[in-house]
Amino acid sequence: MWGEYMSSKSVMTLLGSATLALYSSMAFSLDETSKYFHPQPQSVIAQETYDQHILALWICLAIFIVVFGVMFYSILKHRKSTGYKAANFHHSTVVEIIWTAIPLLILIAMAFPATKTVVAMKDTSEPDITIKATGYQWMWGYDYLQGEGEGISFFSKLSTPVAQVKGTEAKGENYLLEVDNNVVVPVGKKIRVITTANDVLHAWWVPAFGVKQDAIPGFIRDTWFTANKPGVYRGQCVELCGKDHGYMPIVVEVMEADKYTQWVADKKKASAAVVNTAAVGN
């Protein structure tokens, strides 16, 4: 009765093309270098995460096509306006069992590689270097606790000028993703990051390495990464920590071993009196 208002075919075509548009936008994003997808994985964990995500997306796409293939076929063919008469079946135990079992199997297939990665992510043993990252309202403090560079300690604050935020000055290339002191680590070495916080919760995240760990006041947590390639990798605080939560980025600079040694020497020289940042916790 009211159905006539829907000119059937045209609406379905519209819906179909909208879907296609959505999913093709996904396809172009799957390209590894796209700025709209994961940043290029720079560690084993990030790579595994990336691969599992791609796998999951293909599985989802397949299920999507099957389910909505059936549904849209039905929508096109089994409509009253074409004179289709309704069947009256409403039950089939066999079918129900099949479509309970198959998803279960698919999920197991997805959980399997994920389990391996989780175990690997948790293995923070035998690091070459241990760095403590302390979240403050609103900056990060870093202490090199162990390994080459031990004793180095500094704060790392957003270096984007306020004028850029307010829009009175043109925004720079790394707007909001730049700091005064980068965390420097050597390439190919296992870096253990211990997180804690001074005041409220924060979270330390560098997407390219696939590490994200909450920083909790009064407690320490840890995570690790090994960078594949020298370069500068940027991340941000990802746990709401108050007013300037959006303004406490993380910049990790990965260097060749000899450059790193040089950096350590310079840093040590520059700060003859190294104070544990913890002492400034006011």
Partner: peptide
């Protein structure tokens, strides 16, 4: 077992550190 030692101070005008880092 390698033990790393760490020290933090929250909201106190104190300095606090381990005398050996590991």
């Amino acid at each position: 077992i390698a033990i790393e030692l760490d020290a933090n101070v929250r909201g106190l005008p104190w300095q606090f550190k381990p005398l050996q880092s590991n």
